[in-house]
Nucleic acid binder design. Sequence first.
RNA 1: GUCCCCGUAGCAUAAUUGGAUAAUGCAAUCCCCUCCUAAGGGAUAGAUUGGCGGUUCGACUCCGUCCGGGGACGCCA
Length: 586
Amino acid sequence: MKQKLETLLQHVIASLKSEGILDQEIMPKINIERTKDAKHGDFATNLALVLAKPAKTNPRQLADKIILLLPEDSLVSKVEIAGPGFINFFITADSQFQIIKQIHDGGQNFGLSQIGNGKKVQVEFVSANPTGPLHVGHGRGAAYGSAVADLLHAVGFDVSKEYYVNDAGRQMDILATSIWLRYLEECGEVVVFPSNGYRGEYIRDIAFNIHKNSGNEYRHPVELVTEDIPADEPQGGDKELHIDALISRAKTLLGQSLYRDLFQAGLTVILDDIKDDLEEFGVSYQEWFSERSLMEDNSIKDALNRLDTAGYIYEKDGATWFASSQLGDEKDRVVVRDNGQSTYFASDIAYHMNKLDRGFDQIINIWGADHHGYIPRVRAAMRALGADESKLKVLLVQFAILYRGTEKVPMSTRSGEFVTLRQLRSEVGTDAARFFYVMRKSEQHMDFDLKLATSKTNENPVFYVQYAHARVCSVLRQLDEKGLKRNLNLGMDNLDKLTESHETALITLLSKYPETLEKSALQYEPHQLIHYLRDLANSFHTYYNAHQFLVDDEAVRNARLNLICAAKQVLSNGLSLLNINTPESM
RNA sequence: GUCCCCGUAGCAUAAUUGGAUAAUGCAAUCCCCUCCUAAGGGAUAGAUUGGCGGUUCGACUCCGUCCGGGGACGCCA
């Protein structure tokens, strides 16, 4: 429809030029929009406002001229000038009704498009360290990331969802050591647990199982474990030095093989738990990408070599640095520490090189907002690797700040005090959790009041939308109980009987679904789809209360049934895309 | 201190990315089941879009500045 109007306006511009009102060189961007208010017709253009200046006239006069030059078209019933010079288009009712047929024919594919043109897109999200269960902050990233990916898929991109597993590095060493210390407690040793260790209950569970299965295999007397270890912070020492010493003690006492077993046991249990958690949350991945694999197959070395060849690597203070400040970063960054270990950033350079090598046209990283300072250095790395930097898109998700009533809930994985995604799901349900998370713009700070979310009231908007769907199903059951049959063709032949204001409002809204989907996807804003679905549900509920569908007049009845079935189809398509259930009854 | 994000009715969020009278849900007041689930609907009230300047036909949106909230500034990940 928009395209149709656009070609009509192209003709007008050509005429304006040939009449000498406009200069030949001017190539205005034709902007056609949906109107907010039905009084303003269906579509509007600001063309006259934009061209008034170059045409050296006032907008309303120019609008007059434009309408005069506008070719006749069977779809357009009326054209008006309004406000400062907007041109409003009214579409004929007949062409509006077509959408009901289109929805019926399209079924669950209605609204999908091919504008992505099969371009390869990778979306990486959540990627939480496997050092503990996912918490509600990760939940937001999971809901948002999967929604963005699924929307892109729906509009024709070839999407691959990926989780980057940080299964290497110091945090994982801290995890392994924490497990070992808890294990020693299981063995009966009396251990003073480090303040910087992971204190969560799940660590004890893992330790308990290791002890159950392997007995005292990993046991060493606590005196040997703590001998000559620098003091922890509560004892007036440094917690970082303390934990690092404990890590290296664990490695020495256990030896490489046993240490690795312990490390692997922890990683497997926690990662499996994360996978289950996400799957239950309706989030699936094509790829779980291991950071450790980048070390084992020399990817990190290769990446650093490439940076070196490009002239961006130097040595200083015993460490290896990447000269990212030459490429837009604030300062240079260490990639190999003076102890020979590569940094997390080095892994990430290799990871992004790997992504590029896999041939993605677009790489989307969804990160927590605390990582925003990290973006310039990754961009610098991509530039140094000679990649097209515009391929990388980083979307930031603000934290969800939890409240219990007015009380702020403190959260830190390390302290062991956090609300897990699992707890949230079991309290409010998976549908509601997903809906809530995605309802807000991602960069918006989000206050999540657990009391409110857990109070099982009808404040939950997800019920509102689902109920609209269930109501249509209910009407169809009633139809059946009355011994009536739906006559699809009769309904389609009588769509012109849908003249009530509630009906035209609903039809107009339905016709907006494809463009809403497209915008949501291309702008990475699933909340737009949620808002649309809420509007649609509202429009349906209003209609439901105002009119009876199962009327005696067979023609009207079937026309109305076709309309509400179209609404049901669109509700179902939208909710399914967001992985939210569409109940037949509630 | 430097940098980034945010500030919209009492609360939580929208606003077709610079468009027309700033929208929706909760909360408040009133009304609607002899009727397809009232987990619904209708009506009323509620806003100087944090403040002040600027850009233009037109600003919640862009620029400047100030105020307030959050975050980032490691040889951690």
